[in-house]
């Protein structure tokens, strides 16, 4: 009689501890997931920043290098395509692909520009160029940070005992930002 009561109390306490841990783990996962999402919007912000620079850049280049219609058109189209993809962290792959296409269209443009010394000396163009360069650095930075928070999150949903809670409440693995060749190679903007 007495013995079973003690066992009951012990089991009850253990259960409470277990539930407590579970709640803690759950809350931890929630804030971690929030962190990943917040960092993802930072990534989107800096990509948006790059897209905002493009119309101005294209117009400036057009004034000096009207013969480069094809290259300019490629940039405009790649931008339009990239603008259309909206992601909520689900189809990162598609988003990445479009941004990578835009990166490579931009780097082609930057190579073509080398042929136009007048354009390269244009103050407005020089400013746009350094803004673009800065934006590429921001993209690299925010992407790296995204991958870092992603890594922490992905690791913790696979670790015991968090993995139990994660599976029960549907925390999924987050997709990394893959370093792909086209995007990795930021447009060469040397003076």
């Amino acid at each position: 009689m007495k013995k079973s009561a003690i066992i009951g109390i012990v089991v009850g306490v253990l259960l409470l501890m277990f539930i407590g841990r579970g709640v803690g783990a759950y809350n931890g996962l929630v804030s971690m997931e929030e962190g990943v999402d917040a960092q993802w919007s930072q990534v989107e912000n800096v990509y948006q920043r790059r897209m905002d620079l493009i119309p101005n850049l294209v117009n400036t280049v057009k004034g000096y290098a009207a013969h480069e219609q094809e290259t300019l058109q490629a940039v405009v189209e790649a931008r339009a395509k990239a603008t259309q993809t909206n992601v909520d962290g689900d189809n990162i792959a598609q988003y990445q692909e479009n941004q990578a296409a835009l990166s490579s269209a931009l780097s082609k443009l930057m190579v073509v520009v080398e042929k136009y010394p007048d354009l390269k000396a244009n103050q407005n163009f020089m400013q746009l160029q350094s803004q673009l360069e800065g934006t590429e650095n921001r993209i690299a930075t925010e992407r790296r940070r995204y991958n870092e928070v992603c890594k922490t999150y992905n690791a913790s949903i696979r670790k015991f005992p968090t993995v139990v809670i994660a599976n029960m409440s549907g925390f999924d693995k987050k997709e990394y930002f893959e370093a792909d060749k086209a995007a990795e190679k930021a447009p060469e903007v040397n003076f």
């Binding site: 020089m126 400013q127 350094s130 803004q131 800065g134 934006t135």
Partner: peptide, 11 residues
């Protein structure tokens, strides 16, 4: 200190 300005100060 925008990126463009930082570049100018450097140069």
């Amino acid at each position: 200190v925008t990126d463009a300005l930082a570049k100018q100060v450097i140069e």
